[in-house]
């Protein structure tokens, strides 16, 4: 059986490899074939759990405590006083920051 070195094979395929194939509407054709209905169930699940979480927060009073703390924090900032950094305030600030950070990332990469 003949032998051939790895380098020789590479030389042969080097000319043909990595040829970039232009899209020419391929992506659009794929997107047209994507089923739209089936995946909507996932959005429903995400929103459903979101609403359940919100309902629990409202019913347990935690939601209003967070809002109250934020209001106090805002008032202290408005009055240019250094606020008392209670655990609830720290928690609220971190929560709001994380939420806005996540929304920004999703908006940027989804654009």
């Amino acid at each position: 059986m003949s032998t051939i070195s790895d380098k020789e094979i590479r030389n042969f395929f080097d000319k043909a490899k990595k040829e970039q194939i232009p899209d020419n509407g391929f992506s659009k054709r794929v997107m047209k074939q994507i089923p739209r209905q089936e995946r909507n169930t996932h959005s429903v699940i995400v929103w459903g759990f979101g609403l359940v979480g919100l309902a629990i927060a409202v019913l347990s009073g935690a939601f209003f405590r967070v809002l109250g703390s934020l209001a106090l924090f805002g008032r202290d900032l408005a009055l240019a006083r250094v606020p008392d950094l209670s655990p609830m305030i720290v928690y609220s600030v971190i929560l709001v920051s994380l939420v806005s950070f996540s929304i920004n990332i999703f908006r940027k990469s989804g654009a």
Partner: peptide, 29 residues
């Protein structure tokens, strides 16, 4: 990974189209 998570969690067609755009050449080749 970020695009995949957007497709899975939010059914983002825009994110999936970006993945198709990125990999169409390699897969077709």
């Amino acid at each position: 990974i970020l695009l995949v998570s957007q497709v899975v969690l939010f059914n983002s067609h825009k994110a999936f189209e970006q993945l198709v755009n990125k990999y169409q050449s390699a897969v077709r080749r």
